[in-house]
Amino acid sequence: MITEAKLFSDVMGDPELGEIEFDTIDEYARRLAQLPTDLYQSRRRYKTDDIDELIRIAERDDGVERKQEKTVKGHIGKLSEILAFGVRQHMLRFNPASDYKRGDGRFSVPRAQDERHAFTSHELSLIFAQDWFTTGTSSFTRTGWTKWRPHYYWLPLLGLFTGGRINELSQLYLVDIVQSEAGQWFLDFNLMGADKVDESDKSLKTANARRVVPLHNRLVQLGLPEYVQALRKAGHTRLFPELKRDAVKGYGKPASSWFNERFLGRTLGIERNGMKTFHSFRHTFLTATERQGIPERVMAQLAGHQRGDTESYTRYAKDRDADQLAPVINGLAFPETDGIAPFIASDGIRAIRCAERQKDSVRRRSSGANAV
Rank of each mutant, 00 (worst) to 15 (best):
R43S: 07
G74I: 09
G77D: 08
I57D: 00
R43Y: 03
Q41M: 13
I76C: 04
D50A: 11
K67F: 01
R45I: 08
D49E: 10
L39N: 02
E59G: 07
I55C: 13
K47D: 14
T48A: 02
D49H: 15
D49R: 15
K67A: 04
A58P: 09
R44T: 09
T37H: 13
T71V: 08
D49S: 14
E59Q: 15
R43V: 08
R45P: 02
G63E: 13
K67G: 03
R44P: 01
E69N: 12
T48H: 04
R66V: 10
D61N: 15
E65M: 12
I57P: 00
K47N: 14
L54D: 03
G63K: 12
R60K: 15
S42M: 01
K47Y: 05
I57R: 03
I76K: 02
D52S: 11
D50Y: 07
I55P: 11
L39F: 07
L39T: 03
I76F: 00
T71E: 10
R66A: 03
E69D: 14
T48I: 02
R43G: 05
R56V: 12
K73G: 08
Q68T: 09
E53T: 14
R66E: 06
G77P: 12
R60D: 12
K73T: 03
L79Q: 00
R66S: 03
S42N: 06
R56S: 14
H75G: 02
L54S: 00
V64M: 08
D50R: 07
K73P: 04
T37P: 01
G77M: 06
D52E: 14
R66Q: 11
D50L: 08
V72W: 04
L39A: 05
K47R: 13
R60V: 11
